[in-house]
Amino acid sequence: MADSDSGVPVRVCSVDDLADGEAAVADVGGVTVAVVEFDGEVYALENVCPHQGGPVGEGKVEDGCIHCPWHGWQFELESGEHVHGPTAVNTFQVTVEDDDVYVAV
């Protein structure tokens, strides 16, 4: 678990940990966060789908979106918004310093 005061960046993983397309999942200040890389950018979003609580971070990433593996709900990595519906998954600020990925919740 990576403890965090609200808004304080916490190291979650290294960039290399994301190289194979897998998400890094960590508890940051009581929030389960999934960190994924797409097209050279790193994104952090809450690893709980607003639909039925599925592990969003375990889903397929493509075209700037991630698909929750439970029911395929498609969220934009940048905004967290569902591509076709009026809902969103929470996203968090990411900073990369050297090879380390930090997330603030």
Binding site: G59, K60, H67, C68, P69, W70, H71, G72, Q74
Partner: peptide, 8 residues
Amino acid sequence: RSAGGRSE
């Protein structure tokens, strides 16, 4: 049924 592997 998986929509191209996007759901399990």
